[in-house]
Design a protein around this nucleic acid. Structure first.
Lengths: 238, 238
DNA sequence: GCTAATTGCGTCTCGTGGACACAATAGCTA
DNA sequence: TAGCTATTGTGTCCACGAGACGCAATTAGC
């Protein structure tokens, strides 16, 4: 758009950083960095100190450069976030199974494990963003798992959203309870002591020892898949 | 803690603003505001211009005051967010139904409609926070709906998390596609034009006209409830 | 009316994202 | 080989947000 293009992988496609094209021959000084290096520096910071610690200054510092130098490679924070997000998930593991239930469960567990490795990615994934190449690959893998299922396209997408949303929700819980200050169960226990009378069911639910901290990820995944199976079975009748 | 308590509903409980106790007799000048008024001003701004437009300065301006005056009532942004969140959802509608499926579906739709009325609340709800009185009431209502079900306490909580997470995820979609720049389907269509060959299933899913934009909220809620029903039925056998 | 607790709020600091200008560098061409 | 010019490197500046601190104004209780 402007005379200043902020390129470094010189792409022809409009989706800038996420879909780098082949690097064109460049004239001036050799670029000191690549977008990937910058994003990875940001990722290291986010992993160690959380997303809010990721600032242009901080990345530049860790890279032995200065803030404004980075703006040659990255248009702004939003675009950097997009690259970090896509790289955080990476390529999905190919999981060939003819049982769509297994395949979907594996897919959801894949989302979970990737997100858990970079908890800040959940925050980024759930705010509106343009999907990158890896995210597209995850879509493709998830939909491939459901290829045999007699569901509409939008329904399959809904199923993936349901599974991914659940997996990320679990990651949120897990990384929150790591910080004792933010553990829901602990907070609830404290809050409920004074107000037990008005909230009998809540007290009971949080007090119930049976299956406490059962594998919440698996529980949700299995419920969703079971629910999908009910629909698929009904479809097969008609 | 410090000598400066930032009280205005003078509570004895440690959970500060969210659980105001009876106002103690105060000495100095009459407070010009209440926490609720400040939170509601923030809510008005967030509804109209998004969460990022909510700053202490802006709230103060709208209230005809100055930024620092507000800090007498609110310890900081985080606490203000918590109050805004709790008030955004408000009290759940009592929905008496002896059919737990209907009751749960109504609960999920309640979450959806409240969140949709204040889309920014999703952002706040999904980051770690201390539950407020209204949130506790939603827990209680949801658990009450499942009173008859033979599930463990933690499982019931998982079901609510699943439903609420789904409802909020839908709100995210809905408020994103309101801004054409962020609509997923549109972005996907654009991205896929160049890369259709590598992503056959994704292309097919997004192209499938059947049931496109079917009620995604209901679809997910029904899948989840169906999945829970499968488990409940299995439990009843044993 | 005096005193002490409280509120109102101006000023300052620090940190963040980002615009802009200009210097340094290194392919390309003559 | 000597420019020319596209590109990178980076210092400076600005707007704006959260919040600390200090002091002035207010008012309930004695």
């Amino acid at each position: 758009m402007t005379s200043d293009e902020t390129v470094s992988g010189a792409s022809a496609s409009p989706d800038d950083l996420l879909w780098p094209g082949p690097a064109a021959v460049r004239r001036g000084p050799k670029p000191r960095f690549t977008v990937a290096e910058i994003a990875d520096a940001g990722t290291r910071i986010a992993d160690a100190e959380g997303l809010s610690a990721v600032t242009m200054q901080r990345i530049a510092h860790d890279l032995g450069s200065t803030k404004m130098a980075l703006y040659r490679y990255v248009p702004g924070r939003a675009e950097l976030d997009a690259v970090m997000l896509d790289r955080a998930f990476g390529a999905p593991a190919r999981h060939d199974s003819d049982d769509w239930r297994r395949a979907l469960a594996a897919w959801a567990e894949g989302v979970h494990s990737r997100a858990l490795a970079h908890p800040w990615s959940v925050e980024l994934a759930q705010r509106p963003h343009r999907p990158g190449p890896f995210e597209l690959a995850w879509y493709e893998a998830g939909l491939a798992a459901m290829a045999q299922l007699e569901l509409h396209g939008s329904e399959k997408l809904d199923v993936l959203a349901l599974l991914a949303g659940h997996a990320m929700s679990i990651v949120r819980q897990e990384s929150a309870s790591a910080a004792p200050e933010q553990d829901l169960a602990a907070a609830m226990a404290r809050i409920l002591t004074d107000r037990a009378a008005d909230h009998p069911f809540t007290v009971a639910a949080f007090a119930d020892p049976a299956g406490a901290r059962g594998d919440a990820l698996r529980f949700g995944v299995e419920r969703i898949i079971a629910g999908v199976e009910v629909l698929a079975a009904a479809r097969r009748e008609a």
